[in-house]
Computed example of a mutant assay.
Amino acid sequence: MRSLEGMWTLVEVPSAQEHKYTGVRSSSSALCLCEPQTFPCITWLRRASRQLGNPSQRRPPARPPARPERAPTRTLGEQRSATAACRGITQVPNLVFWSLNALFLVSDTSGKPNFISRYRIQIGKNEPVDPEKLRQTIRAVLFNQFVISFPMVIALYPLLKRWGDPCRRELPTFHWFLLELVIFTLIEEVMFYYSHRLLHHPALYKKIHKKHHEWTASIGLVSLYAHPVEHVVSNMVPLVLGPLLMGSHLSSITTWFSLALITSTLSHCGYHLPFLPSPEFHDYHHLKFTQCYGVLGVLDHLHGTDTMFKQSKAYERHVLLLGLTPLSESIPDTPKMK
């Protein structure tokens, strides 16, 4: 047997272990005998020993593989906020719409009470209203409200939330709400005028807008009696665009929609009642078709689409009635020449 002297070398071999659960590395060493032929590995072993002794040269512990990130999901509170927003934006204005129209329908179908019938603009028409035509109108209005308007509001809710959470706790100040109403009204005037006038183009009128003009003497429900395309383009978009651009609060949107439906109902009701906005402007549009396209009349004045209206008796009656005498009696139409 060969002697260990000169033939074998005693070497301290470093070793390292990583804890199974904590990931902490620990170092240790062991003694072993190496043959001369293995002397080149001794340098490497010593270098490894120095690295284990120097913390700055140690490799960082291996991290477990990262789990794939899941797509963010809405919390229960956010879902409730979205539901409350959609209900507030649609159900409250709808309740206001049907409550007001129910009062007008009593007079439209029965002619009572008599003091309301006295204020009818187009005397002798809709006295009473055609029942079949009324049922057809009610079906179309319900379809537009629940099949078109409600899903459209749900689809637009993420856009409302992007500009500003409509269900935030802070209510808008009264001055800010008045500013919003001014902007909403101006946007509606521009969008409604041009979309409405576009629908009177011969290529679109017969297929789309003619349905709304089946009523030459309109009633309150006719405000939402329209082809689905017209309901989206001319009724919904002009109303929704303002709150979208302003990032409005739920209370502002609900109030705006309710006011818009009240105004539209009064414009179509066919009665010029005391202390209420005059419906003569839009009633004249249903009578003549090619006049008075807008809501406020500003763009009609600029484009000259109210010239016939300004020459009519309806223009003289287009004022706020502050007395109880019907304007059809104080300012009667000019008798037709035979």
Rank of each mutant, 00 (worst) to 15 (best):
S29H: 06
L239E: 08
Y293R: 08
L239P: 04
E316I: 10
Q145Y: 03
L287R: 13
G23C: 07
K112D: 06
I148T: 05
I89D: 00
S81K: 13
S28C: 05
Q311H: 10
L10S: 09
Y194W: 15
A62H: 03
R317N: 05
E127D: 08
L276M: 12
P202G: 00
T83V: 14
Q79G: 07
T185D: 11
R168F: 04
F115G: 03
R80F: 04
I148F: 09
P166D: 01
I148K: 01
E69F: 00
R2T: 11
Q57K: 10
V129W: 04
A66N: 00
L142W: 12
P238V: 06
A71L: 14
M337T: 12
I89H: 04
R67E: 15
R135Y: 10
P131S: 01
T173S: 15
V237A: 14
V141C: 11
L33C: 03
V240T: 10
S27G: 12
L179F: 11
G323A: 05
S267H: 09
S26V: 13
E132G: 11
P93S: 00
P36V: 08
G294P: 12
K336E: 15
R2Q: 10
A48K: 08
M152L: 15
I187P: 11
F289W: 13
M308Q: 14
E132M: 05
L156C: 06
Q79D: 06
R74P: 02
P277N: 02
G242I: 01
L45E: 01
H301Y: 13
P72H: 02
T43E: 00
R80L: 13
P238Q: 03
Y205G: 01
A85V: 04
S99R: 06
H286P: 13
P128M: 00
K112V: 11
L142S: 06
Y315Q: 04
Q91W: 12
T255H: 12
K112F: 13
G77F: 05
L224Q: 14
A102F: 14
V13M: 02
W215R: 07
M152K: 01
V319G: 02
R120K: 15
I331F: 03
G77C: 01
P60F: 04
H213K: 05
S56H: 13
G294M: 07
Q122D: 02
I331G: 02
H285C: 11
H272Y: 00
R162M: 04
L259D: 03
P228N: 10
S49Q: 12
L159T: 01
P14R: 04
A84P: 04
P326L: 06
I154P: 01
T173K: 07
D108F: 02
D165S: 12
L273Y: 06
E188H: 08
R25D: 00
V129I: 09
E5Q: 06
H196C: 07
A82G: 09
V319K: 15
R59G: 02
Q37K: 12
K161C: 09
V237R: 10
H231E: 04
M308Y: 07
T185H: 12
P335R: 10
K206H: 13
L10K: 08
E5D: 06
T22H: 03
A62Y: 00
P14Q: 04
H272P: 02
M7E: 14
L250D: 00
L171K: 11
H200V: 10
S258K: 06
H282G: 03
S3L: 05
M152E: 01
